[in-house]
Design a protein around this nucleic acid. Structure first.
Length: 586
RNA sequence: UGGGGAGUCGCCAAGCUGGUUAAGGCACAUGGUUUUGAUCCAUGCAUGCGAAGGUUCGAAUCCUUCCUCCCCAGCCA
């Protein structure tokens, strides 16, 4: 309990939370208005005081599947809103129709819900699309042109690039920069008209071509794209750039804290510049949103870049976006990773501005920690070898009782049938035991978990030297749960399943997708792929697992956590190993 | 070489408007419990805060210089 509350304190102290606490205590949002929906000043000034103490947003571009890095951002943004009695909007940043698709929108919505969040606040559904704001953005652009802060440039992309200068030398003004405002207004209208080719004109903010910050050298803010949009269809032939759109989206939605990743740090001056210009035009009013940046997640043995993820799927290095080895949320889910595990993980790794690589084992350990609490226990034999009890009658069988959870008796117990012939794991027997090996070996005593103590009397091998049968005697007075069962102390304790009753299933044993901690650091990342990231085999599982359905999760004792795969059917059970148990032996 | 960031224990990460022994987690180590070599519990784990100087009664926190790493020259986000 004490450690839990300490965890909470630790996770709650990051620089963004500190800033929010300060902003709230300084009453920054005391007079903030909200008119039940996004909008500019015209709209919001007619509203009431915003009941949301703060507003944050998670703004994915619907051009790919969410991954573990997004989970960090989701927990940050939605968590902030939750903890400060605010609202977190889910907003699709769909300003580039060429790359975006409804398929991704659906998947993202499902993923965010899966992680346990919704975007409802005071019965308002805060699910938005940047494309819903295109009219506002167009209006803002015109305001900017009229006030002399934007112009239509007719240089081609090549010329613009050349005139932008370099990191160490200033850029050159565009010849179109100082044309009359009227001309720019007219050109911008023409851009919208749809009669101009892509790239023939572009609207640029007029700031400073000599700025040491390249993002301020008259950034492009609206470009011609004669393509239809998945939401707005053919209404527009011009689309705003992220740089321009994002601050406006935030302001329209009354976002107080706009949290993004480090690479946008250089854009913050433009973010503030734009909003200030629009405030001067009474398009927006205080309090204006502020942008804060944190370090994106890097995980060892994992790639998270969109480009690489796509490549893994398209080149069939994995079976798809939801391959359990993929760091996507759909893949993680299929692997058996859980929302509460991700929550623990994000709390544990914290939020800062320092570039860092989180050990993959941290993530795995979080999943173990969560699953250890919740998962019911079962028995599975992953590499079966036959154990025959010499002194157990051929036709005899009996029930052994096994609790579903060692720490929680309320979860009940189930019975496992014991018979003369059993399956045990090959690992649990050594012909010549190594030092400190306390499982089965010739002459050794070991307990059949939940059953009897046995003593190994011998074994048989096939022509290739593989062990085929192991023989033992059981000690009748040692059955678990009966008086005196503990009279004989043994160190080893192995699991087993009746050959007569065990059910056969298929298991996918997953290991890390990459064998290098930093894939691609020393060569092409594809060369760092782990050839053994998946092994599939036939295993034996408890009879009562016959009714397992996709998504069911269990701990197979002494092995790890497993989940029934999407494709699993009663007559073709498929299990995925989520993660192994920790193993201090060797 | 311009601009913007970051460097605190193996991995994360508080602290950074200067003030007693530098939080916490993970990992690790050693004990204990245990019919999962799991879990759980206990204890240990930075004379040190990228480096070197300086200011001060006192510095991770202030100043100076230096070093390393990341980001920016898309009509991507």
């Amino acid at each position: 309990m004490a450690t839990n509350s300490q965890n909470k304190i630790a996770s709650s102290s990051n620089f963004i939370r500190a800033k929010i606490e300060k902003d709230i205590s300084n009453n920054l949002y005391k007079n903030k208005l909200w008119n039940k929906a996004p909008g500019n000043s015209r709209h919001q000034l007619k509203g009431n005081l915003d009941e949301a103490k703060i507003r944050t947003r998670f703004p994915p571009e619907p051009n790919g599947y969410l991954h573990i890095g997004h989970a960090k951002s989701i927990f940050l943004n939605f968590g902030l809103a939750q903890d400060f009695s605010g609202a977190c909007h889910l907003r699709f940043d769909d300003t580039n129709p060429e790359k975006e698709d409804q398929e991704y929108v659906d998947s993202i919505i499902e993923n965010v819900k899966w992680l346990g969040f919704d975007w409802n606040f005071n019965n308002e559904d805060n699910l938005y699309y940047a494309s819903d704001y295109f009219d506002y953005m167009y209006e803002a652009a015109i305001l900017l042109i009229k006030s002399g802060f934007a112009y239509v440039d007719q240089q081609n992309a090549e010329e613009i690039r050349e005139n932008r200068g370099t990191l160490t030398s200033p850029g050159k003004d565009s010849p179109w920069r100082d044309h009359p405002t009227e001309d720019h207004l007219k050109c911008f209208e023409e851009m919208r008209g749809g009669n101009h080719a892509d790239g023939s004109m572009v609207l640029r903010a007029k700031i400073n071509m000599a700025s040491p910050n390249i993002n301020l050298r008259d950034p492009a803010i609206y470009r011609i794209k004669n393509v239809s949009h998945h939401k707005t269809g053919d209404k527009w032939s011009i689309y705003p750039m992220y740089t321009f759109a994002h601050p406006i989206e935030d302001a329209l939605e009354g976002i107080t804290h706009s949290v993004c990743t480090l690479e946008f740090e250089d854009q913050r001056p433009f973010y503030d510049w734009l909003l200030k210009r629009l405030k001067e035009n009474n398009f927006f009013s205080d309090p204006l949103p502020k942008q804060y940046e944190f370090a994106r997640l890097n995980l060892t043995y994992v790639v998270l870049s969109k480009r690489r993820l796509i490549e893994l799927v398209e080149n069939k290095h994995v079976s798809g976006w939801d391959d359990p080895r993929m760091p996507t949320l759909v893949g993680s889910k299929r692997r058996g990773y859980t929302p509460s595990g991700f929550k623990l993980f994000t709390d544990r790794i914290g939020v800062s501005k320092a570039d860092s690589w989180i050990d993959y084992v941290i993530l795995e350990d979080c999943m173990r920690e969560v699953l250890n609490e919740s998962a019911h226990r079962r028995v599975a034999v992953l590499d079966p070898v036959k154990l025959i009890i010499n002194n157990y009658p051929e036709d005899q069988e009996e029930d052994c009782f096994a609790p579903n959870h060692p720490k929680n008796k309320d979860l009940g117990e189930r019975t496992i049938k014991l018979t003369k012939e059993l399956w045990i794991d090959r690992d649990d027997f050594m012909e010549v035991p190594v030092d400190k090996y306390f499982r089965l070996s010739p002459g050794a005593q070991v307990r059949l978990r939940y059953g009897f103590v046995i003593e190994c009397t011998g074994f048989e091998k096939d022509i290739d030297g593989n062990i085929t049968n192991i023989f033992c005697d059981y000690l009748p007075d040692t059955k678990s749960g009966t008086p005196g069962a503990d009279a004989i102390k043994v160190k080893g304790n192995i699991h087993w399943l009746s050959c007569k009753y065990a059910v056969t299933a298929t298991v996918n044993l997953y290991d890390r997708l990459f064998k290098e901690a930093h894939p691609g650091e020393n060569n092409n990342y594809l060369d760092d792929l782990n050839p053994d990231s998946l092994t599939t085999r036939e295993i034996k599982i408890e009879e009562n697992l016959k009714t397992i359905v996709p998504g069911d999760q269990y701990q197979f004792e002494r092995h790890g956590y497993f989940i029934a795969d999407n494709l699993s059917k009663p007559d073709d059970i498929i299990l995925n190993r989520t993660t192994t148990l920790r193993d201090n032996w060797q």
